[in-house]
Simulated scan of single mutants.
Amino acid sequence: MIDPSLLTAGTQLYLRPIWFAESPVGLDGQTARMGGGLIWFQGYEVTARSGGVIQRHRVSVAEFDDWCAHLIAPLAERVAQLVRNIGAIRPPVALKDRMIRFDVPQVMGILNMTPDSFSDGGKNLGDPQAAADAGFAMAAAGAAIIDVGGESTRPRADKVWEGDEIARVVPVIERLAASGVPVSIDTRKAAVMEAALAAGAGLVNDVSALAHDPRSVEVVARAACPVVLMHSPSCGDDPHEGGVYQDALLDVYDALEGRIAACEAAGIARDRIIVDPGLGFGKSLADNLAIMNRLALFQGLGVPVLLGASRKRMIGALSNEAPADARLGGSLALAVRGVEQGAQMLRVHDVRESVQAVHIWRGLRDAALMAG
Rank of each mutant, 00 (worst) to 15 (best):
Y14S: 07
R16K: 14
P17E: 05
P17K: 05
P17A: 03
A21P: 03
R33E: 07
G37V: 02
W40R: 02
F41D: 01
A48C: 03
R56A: 13
R58Q: 15
F64V: 08
D66Q: 15
C68M: 14
Q81W: 11
A88Y: 10
V93S: 05
K96H: 12
K96W: 01
I100C: 12
R101V: 12
I110Y: 10
S117G: 15
N124S: 10
D127Y: 05
D127I: 04
A130R: 15
A131K: 10
A134N: 06
A140M: 09
A144D: 12
I146C: 03
V148Y: 08
P155G: 03
D158P: 00
W161I: 06
W161M: 06
A167L: 10
A190F: 04
A191T: 12
V192H: 08
E194I: 07
A196G: 13
E218P: 00
R222H: 13
P226I: 02
L229V: 04
L229M: 04
G242V: 09
L250W: 07
A255G: 00
A255T: 10
R259Q: 15
E264F: 06
R270P: 04
D271V: 01
D276N: 11
G282F: 01
L295Q: 06
L297H: 07
F298V: 11
F298Q: 02
G300V: 02
S310E: 07
M314R: 01
I315N: 09
N320E: 13
N320F: 14
R327V: 13
Q344D: 10
V348M: 07
Q356R: 14
G363W: 05
L364G: 00
D366H: 09
